[in-house]
C-alpha cells in the first residue's frame, strides 16, 4: 500500500528530476522560489500525463548510460569532420551510398529508439525505418563501400553497449 501511494504521486521519478532541471535551466536561477515551482511542475506534469505512458522505462545501469552518452558525443564530433570532408571533397559519383539492413538483438522500445537516434547522429548514417515486428532497422549510409562491415561496426559499437544497459 505504501509503495502504491508513492507510485501514484511519483509515476515517473526520472521525469520529475528532468522537469525540475529544465525549469532551473529555463529561468537560469536556482532560488528557493524557482526550485519550489520547478518541483511543483515536476510533480504535476507526470501525474497528468501518466495515463499516456503506463510503463516505467527501466534502465539497468544508469552509470553505463552516462559513459555511453560520452562515447556518442565523441563520435558525433568525429563524424561531423568526416561528413564535412565527404561533402566538400568527394564527387557525387565516387560516393557509394547504400541501404543497410541491421538485424536487431535488442527488443526494448527505449533501447531501439536510443540506437536509432545514435545512428542518425554518427558517421554518415541515417536510420530511416523499422520493420513491422521491430526486428530489423533500415539505415541509409552516405559512403559505405562495404555495407556488411558498417552494420557489424554499428552492432559492435552501439548495440552491444545498449544491450548491457537496458537488458
Amino acid at each position: 500500500m505504501q509503495r502504491g501511494l508513492l507510485h501514484l504521486i511519483f509515476p515517473h521519478p526520472a521525469l520529475t528530476v528532468v522537469l525540475l532541471l529544465t525549469w532551473c535551466l529555463l529561468t537560469a536561477s536556482v532560488s528557493l522560489g524557482n526550485l519550489f515551482l520547478g518541483l511543483l511542475l515536476g510533480i504535476l506534469v507526470p501525474i497528468v500525463t501518466a495515463a499516456y505512458w503506463p510503463d516505467r522505462p527501466m534502465m539497468r545501469s544508469p552509470l553505463r548510460f552516462i559513459a555511453y552518452v560520452f562515447i556518442v558525443l565523441w563520435d558525433i564530433l568525429l563524424a561531423n569532420f568526416e561528413v564535412a570532408w565527404i561533402v566538400l571533397f568527394r564527387s557525387n559519383r565516387s560516393m557509394q551510398s547504400n541501404w543497410i539492413v541491421i538485424p536487431l538483438e535488442i527488443r526494448h522500445p527505449e533501447a531501439v529508439a536510443v540506437l536509432a537516434g545514435t545512428i542518425t547522429l554518427t558517421p554518415g548514417t541515417v536510420s530511416a525505418d523499422l520493420s513491422q515486428s521491430g526486428r530489423y532497422l533500415l539505415v541509409h549510409a552516405l559512403d559505405a563501400p562495404a555495407p556488411e562491415q558498417t552494420a557489424r561496426e554499428i552492432k559492435h559499437r552501439y548495440e552491444r553497449r545498449l544491450k548491457e544497459i537496458f537488458e
Binding site: 513491422q132 515486428s133 533500415l138
Partner: peptide
C-alpha cells in the same frame, strides 16, 4: 534524428530515392 526519420520516410514513400531492400522475405518495413 526524429525530423531526419520523418523526412527519410517522405523520400521512401515519394519514391524519389532508390527502393530500400526488404528486411526479410516474410516482413515489410
Amino acid at each position: 534524428p526524429i525530423s531526419a526519420n520523418f523526412i527519410a520516410k517522405v523520400a521512401i514513400h515519394g519514391r524519389t530515392c532508390d527502393r530500400p531492400p526488404a528486411p526479410s522475405p516474410d516482413e515489410v518495413w
